[in-house]
Amino acid sequence: MGRLPPFAVEDWMEEHETKAKYNLAETCCDSISADHLQTLCEDKSAKVIDLSKRLNYGSIRGSDVLRTNLSRLYSSRAATPLPPENILTTPGAIAANHLVFYSLVGPGDHVVCHYPTYQALYEVPASLGGEVDLWKAKFENDWTPDIEELKGLIKSNTKLIVLNNPNNPTSAVLKRSLMEQIVELAKEHSITIMCDEVYRPIFHSISPMDKEFPLSILSLGYQKTIATGSMSKAYSLAGIRVGWIAARDPEIIQKCVATRHYTTISVSQLDEQVAAFALDPNTVHSLLRRNIDLAKANIEILEKFIIKHDEMCEWVRPVAGTTALVRFKRDDKPIDAVQFCKILLEKTGVLFAPGKCFGDEYEGFVRIGFVPSTVVLKEGLQKVQAFLRKEFDDLPLAA
């Protein structure tokens, strides 16, 4: 395994987020406590954690109740139910993604990765000896990548297509018709598709009744598909560090299990109990309604801010997810977003993440996480507004 380069956005967050009063670089829906989670459950006698259970390794592939709850979610809009046995729990989605890559990619394999995206989705397969090409979405095309460009990237040794839907950092979605085209292309060449779905199902501006509503990759009728997810983003429980791999092909799960024996063996029983409680039918609907309603309210607040400052910034309004990639400019030239973010944090306590964390071509962009508490978002944007009024003309432009 080759040496991994610095993880730009995680380095940025580690250095700056503890200094922020208004963390608008955060990507999770406003986090909750175990006590808050309990109040969302319709069964008021249910306990988040059973403290009488012995704390051994537990079920190696994941607790039966947690995997059953996950299989229920993946089966709800699928023609064929997903068996619980086709799910493997992991310590967060970042571990799930890493495990898939380590299990499936090696020297001589070609990988195509949807971009911009979370850096691990292309750097990890490259570190394993894979040849990686980026399938680039463009701001000018509403962050929708071109299927013809994807066709041109496919090679005889293409092993894996990596997607991120909804996307980080843009929160754009790959619509159903495009996903169906990707699946048909993968079928033609017998390529496995892995989709990082950690922001699913935070769909705040597109209805499930819309014909272009994006289904999970596991619901599109192709056997060689993998979805990864976690409790962190859509479910407000980053602190329990529970993620998962779900696959239509049980052989993929078996390969990941064999690899995981060398890493974490199993996931914390306590963490899995919290996750199972959150995904139980008595809880999950209230939890998701809380977070989708929060996203709906907050995206309207952010949109008003963008419109009010449209001479300074522009965006593609997200229809899902928790983040927006916003471009700041002066005289039609991009500002130096890294300096902007540093000065903004120093003078206001507001934290954004510079677009350069996702690639040098995103100079001028900042990623804004818009699903903290509404109070934090409102107060933070008020601070940004005052800053722009006084300081914007003095900010350096991008080189």
Score class of each variant (00 low, 15 high):
residue 1 M to H: 10
residue 3 R to G: 13
residue 3 R to Y: 06
residue 7 F to W: 10
residue 13 M to L: 15
residue 20 A to K: 05
residue 21 K to S: 13
residue 29 C to Y: 00
residue 31 S to W: 07
residue 43 D to L: 09
residue 51 L to Q: 14
residue 53 K to W: 02
residue 60 I to H: 06
residue 67 R to Q: 08
residue 70 L to K: 08
residue 72 R to I: 09
residue 76 S to L: 13
residue 80 T to L: 06
residue 84 P to K: 07
residue 85 E to T: 15
residue 87 I to P: 01
residue 93 A to D: 09
residue 93 A to V: 10
residue 95 A to G: 06
residue 96 A to L: 02
residue 101 F to Q: 05
residue 104 L to D: 01
residue 105 V to L: 04
residue 107 P to D: 04
residue 113 C to I: 11
residue 117 T to N: 06
residue 120 A to T: 11
residue 126 A to E: 12
residue 129 G to Y: 01
residue 130 G to A: 10
residue 131 E to C: 14
residue 132 V to D: 04
residue 134 L to P: 14
residue 136 K to T: 02
residue 136 K to C: 09
residue 142 D to R: 13
residue 144 T to E: 08
residue 151 K to S: 08
residue 163 L to D: 01
residue 164 N to P: 11
residue 171 S to K: 00
residue 173 V to I: 11
residue 175 K to G: 11
residue 177 S to L: 12
residue 178 L to M: 14
residue 179 M to Q: 15
residue 181 Q to N: 12
residue 187 K to T: 06
residue 190 S to E: 12
residue 191 I to R: 04
residue 194 M to C: 09
residue 195 C to H: 00
residue 207 S to T: 02
residue 208 P to E: 01
residue 208 P to D: 00
residue 213 F to N: 11
residue 236 S to M: 06
residue 238 A to M: 09
residue 240 I to S: 05
residue 241 R to N: 13
residue 246 A to C: 00
residue 248 R to M: 04
residue 249 D to G: 09
residue 251 E to W: 04
residue 259 T to Y: 05
residue 270 L to Q: 11
residue 274 V to T: 03
residue 275 A to S: 07
residue 288 L to H: 03
residue 289 R to N: 15
residue 291 N to P: 05
residue 303 E to P: 07
residue 304 K to E: 10
residue 306 I to W: 04
residue 319 V to Y: 01
residue 324 A to Y: 02
residue 326 V to F: 03
residue 326 V to T: 06
residue 328 F to H: 03
residue 335 I to P: 03
residue 341 C to D: 05
residue 343 I to S: 12
residue 351 L to S: 08
residue 353 A to E: 03
residue 358 F to C: 10
residue 358 F to T: 07
residue 367 R to H: 08
residue 371 V to P: 13
residue 389 R to Q: 14
residue 391 E to C: 15
residue 391 E to F: 09
residue 394 D to W: 05
residue 395 L to F: 02
